[in-house]
């Protein structure tokens, strides 16, 4: 059973069609990334899933329950993008408050809160008012409140926003730990390199429509294109290589070839060796997620196909 499932989800604001029939399905234990420009409908989708926004039509389920049912959010944690923790809280009281709202019994909170404060690195500021915190500290505290009740599903909207590179790495590591613990993570992020590093599957949404969805590895792989480097200058050999492959171009000190299949690739390698060249590296060519993203936005019809 999918942990998150939407069918034909539509949301109209007064003059804006924020979602135009979105279907997604996220399985348990997946890290699912949602990509899109500002205003594409990412936040609306997350807010519908969390019951903050009501859908115009379509259905959405969270952990098997309709999203309007508060019980659907019992095992869910959420880190919003523009969060604003009430400034009269300290880290301790904020975690106590949100933990209480999530249904964590008081006795459990007493044990969990110090551990969580330690985990999010706010031990020294645990009793300081939130109004004295830096953006990064607030971000970590917000992440803490999302995780305190050990949810099965985490919605993270720009989790590394405002966090320094070291903190970002820590959050990535934390997400890896959560994934290994079988948690499902729904990630909204502009940092495509991070999404690429963390996510199992991604979806690209544009103007309220899901343009592309799939496995990260599959989406970024470019079939039958390889980058080769050899131990000697290869320019003189380019015409001969051209006759054996579908395409070749000079890239740095090596070449990038497009072949018919693996047989053609092996034949090329044999030829180079027969000409006295030793292969120093051979890498299957991949696109970055950013390239995939931009390509999808620029050529929607290609993405759809």
């Amino acid at each position: 059973m999918p942990v998150i499932e939407t069918v034909g989800l539509v949301k109209h604001y007064k003059n804006v069609h924020a979602l135009k029939g979105v279907n997604i399905s996220v399985e348990a234990g997946e890290i699912y990334g949602l990509l899109g420009r500002n205003g594409a409908g990412k936040t609306t989708l997350v807010k519908i899933l969390l019951g903050i926004v009501h859908p115009t039509s379509g259905t959405a389920k969270l952990l098997g329950r309709p999203v309007g049912d508060p019980a659907s959010r019992a095992r869910v944690g959420f880190l919003p993008e523009d969060h604003r923790l009430p400034d009269y809280h300290t880290a301790e009281t904020a975690l106590d408050f949100y933990g209480g709202l999530s249904g964590v019994p008081r006795r459990d909170r007493r044990k969990k809160i110090p551990a969580m404060i330690e985990q999010i690195g706010l031990k020294d500021a645990a009793r300081r008012k939130v109004r004295t915190y830096s953006k990064g500290m607030k971000q970590r505290l917000c992440l803490g409140q999302a995780m305190l009740h050990e949810p099965d599903v985490l919605f993270l909207d720009e989790p590394t926003d405002g966090v320094d590179p070291v903190g970002r790495k820590e959050i990535r590591d934390l997400l890896a730990v959560l994934k290994s613990a079988g948690k499902t993570i729904f990630l909204n992020s502009h940092l495509l390199s991070e999404v690429e590093l963390i996510c199992d599957r991604v979806a690209i949404i544009e103007l309220g429509t899901l343009r592309r969805e799939g496995n990260v590895r599959d989406m970024t792989r470019v079939e039958n294109v390889y980058a080769l480097t050899v131990d000697k200058p290869i320019d003189a050999l380019l015409p001969a290589i051209q006759e054996r492959v579908k395409g070749v171009r000079r890239v740095g000190s090596g070449i990038e070839v497009t072949v018919q299949d693996s047989t053609a690739l092996n034949a090329l390698v044999d030829y180079l060796r027969s000409q006295g060249f030793n292969l120093t590296s051979m890498i299957e060519k991949k696109q970055t997620l950013e390239e995939v993203f931009l390509e999808t936005l620029e050529k929607p019809e290609a993405a759809a196909s």
Binding site: K47, L50, G51, I52, P70, A71, S72, R73, A74, V76, F78, P80, D82, H83, R84, L85, P86, Y98, L101, S102, G103, C142, Q145, F155
Partner: peptide, 18 residues
């Protein structure tokens, strides 16, 4: 109005509360 501020309310409504 303070509770209804964007960011504050999101944190609250994402919890299992009516």
């Amino acid at each position: 109005p303070g509770m209804l501020q964007k960011g504050t309310l999101d944190l609250l409504l994402a919890k299992p509360v009516r």
